[in-house]
């Protein structure tokens, strides 16, 4: 009963591995969005993730193209100068957004939120 034995390290590694695996599962694969809400000046509509399509939204500067493909949504073309909305990449989880500030376009992923919002005791 002197020092650590091999089983101790095995148990520690196992517990950490199981906890990390479960955390990873909860955080990254729990809430896939079901639809995309596109908002612009005086325009708001939700598109389903089930059918692939290109949505062209008119803003103050011009037309922003939003592509919905294979469960992901991203901005492919925008008339704005910085092109930050294009660099924001592909989104698919509930609550994620792509925003183009100069062209006043907001793309948000909607869906049933399965994460815990709050706990009362």
């Amino acid at each position: 009963m002197k020092r650590f034995k091999p089983g101790d390290y095995a148990v520690m590694v196992l517990v950490i591995a199981v906890a990390t695996f479960l955390l990873y599962q909860y955080v990254f694969s729990s809430s896939h969005g079901t639809e995309v809400q596109v908002t612009s000046q005086g325009f708001q509509r939700a598109f389903s993730f089930n059918e692939d399509r290109i949505v062209e939204v008119e803003g103050p500067l011009g037309i922003t193209s939003v592509i919905i493909d294979d469960g992901e949504v991203w901005v492919s073309d925008s008339p704005c100068r910085e092109k930050i909305c294009i660099k924001m990449g592909k989104k698919r989880r509930v609550g994620e957004q792509v925003v183009c500030v100069p062209n006043r376009v907001i793309v948000e992923v909607k869906g049933e939120r399965s994460n815990v919002d709050g706990v009362t005791r």
Partner: peptide
């Protein structure tokens, strides 16, 4: 296989 620490965990 286990020392007291492993049993405790």
């Amino acid at each position: 296989v286990f020392s007291l620490v492993g049993i405790s965990i």
